[in-house]
């Protein structure tokens, strides 16, 4: 026992070496001008821009800059947001003329000291930066965004559908859609055709059509094969260009056309 004690005394515990402190991140706050589009269609007031001087760091997002305005400068700014991590699809808006998610766009990546935020185009304005998603959601529902299969109900004795990784890859990408509406806002056809289904709806029609558990292909193809449907897409690719989740609606639309033209089964 004593020997053990002695050996402990002889062998002092090595001192834990604390890692050297990380070098301080150099990030001098700078000030930018945030121009926010202000409009209230219910009061028939003309749209105008209010300008605010905002201190930002290199990690500040556009949403944080807008929330800084709401908290400190003008609490009446209307903006919709929720998750702040590009998952809910609520904070879509035009930032310096291009549809983006405000929570996913850092001020520093815009390379400009003046940032202009406007409501997304091709959506009715509720107020300021908040737009109405009614048409987007109703179009989404029209595409029957669910598996249509009589045998899919969970019943006693029913077996699960087995899908290979290849089966999954055919539609997985398109199931990442967060319904933010950026694709519809960038689409040149949506700019002029109010009845057009839009890239979001068409991509979702493909997502379920390509799923080998689904048996609703015929019905869905009938829905998209109409005058304001899939044939109004001219493959400008802007929808895929702005998608924040890598969904690639332009590809989905062309592949869906492949079904209608008989190139795909």
């Amino acid at each position: 026992m004593a020997a053990i004690t002695a050996s402990r005394e002889e062998k002092p515990e090595p001192t834990k070496q604390t890692p050297p402190p990380a070098p301080a991140v150099e990030s001098a706050p700078k000030t930018i001008t945030l121009r926010i589009s202000r409009s209230n269609p219910s009061e028939n007031s003309a749209a105008k821009f209010d300008e605010f001087q905002i201190p930002v760091q290199k990690w500040t997002t556009v949403l944080e800059a807008i929330l800084h305005v709401k908290q400190n400068l003008d609490h009446s700014v209307a903006v919709r947001y929720s998750c702040r991590q590009a998952s809910c699809g609520s904070c879509g808006m035009k930032i310096n003329g291009r549809p983006r998610l405000a929570c996913y766009t850092k001020v520093s990546e815009l390379d400009s000291n003046v940032i202009t935020v406007e409501p997304m185009s091709n959506f009715p304005i509720i107020r300021d930066l908040a737009v109405d998603f009614k048409q987007l959601f109703s179009t989404h529902k029209k595409m029957k965004p669910f598996i249509i299969n009589e045998g899919s109900e969970v019943q006693p004795g029913a077996k699960e559908f087995i899908q290979t990784p290849n089966d999954l890859e055919k539609f997985l990408q398109f199931s990442y859609c967060i319904k933010c509406g950026l694709c519809n806002s960038a689409c040149p056809t949506m700019a002029t055709d109010k009845s057009f289904i839009g890239p979001q709806g068409l991509a979702q029609a493909y997502r379920y059509t390509a799923d080998n558990r689904d048996e609703g292909k015929k019905g869905r193809l009938k829905i998209v094969d109409q005058s304001h449907g899939i044939w109004r897409c001219h493959f400008a690719g802007s929808c895929s260009n702005v998608c924040p989740k890598g969904v690639d609606p332009a590809m989905a639309i062309q592949l869906l056309r492949g079904y209608l033209l008989g190139f795909r089964k």
Partner: peptide, 18 residues
Amino acid sequence: EGGKGVGKPGQPEYPYRA
């Protein structure tokens, strides 16, 4: 527009390139 030459669906990886 017949679905040829537009790539294959797959797992999107950041930074997303369509």
